[in-house]
């Protein structure tokens, strides 16, 4: 199952807090697609996910200086 989270309207620290809480609610093997802004969220969200042992499957730029990343729990 694939979940989606838009954190482009969030600011620090709720950007990675929301991603962490969403991942905690999901089962192992499920995927989470996150839309985020360049800058701090793009630097920190993928890194903190990988530190927790989750896989960042893709990281694609979209319009308006945003990125779409796909994480597998």
């Amino acid at each position: 199952m694939k979940h989606f989270l838009d954190i482009t309207k969030e600011t620090c620290p709720m950007t990675f807090v929301k991603v962490k809480l969403q991942l905690a609610r999901m089962d192992a093997g499920e995927q989470l697609e996150v839309l985020l802004n360049e800058g701090e969220p793009l630097e920190n969200v993928p890194r903190s996910c990988e530190e927790q042992g989750f896989k960042v499957l893709s990281n694609e730029p979209t319009d308006n200086n945003q990125h779409l990343i796909l994480i597998q729990k």
Binding site: C12, P13, M14, F16, V17, V19, K20, L21, N44, S48, E51, Q52
Partner: peptide, 8 residues
Amino acid sequence: ATGAAATN
């Protein structure tokens, strides 16, 4: 606190 907890 929340930033630290969310970054493990």
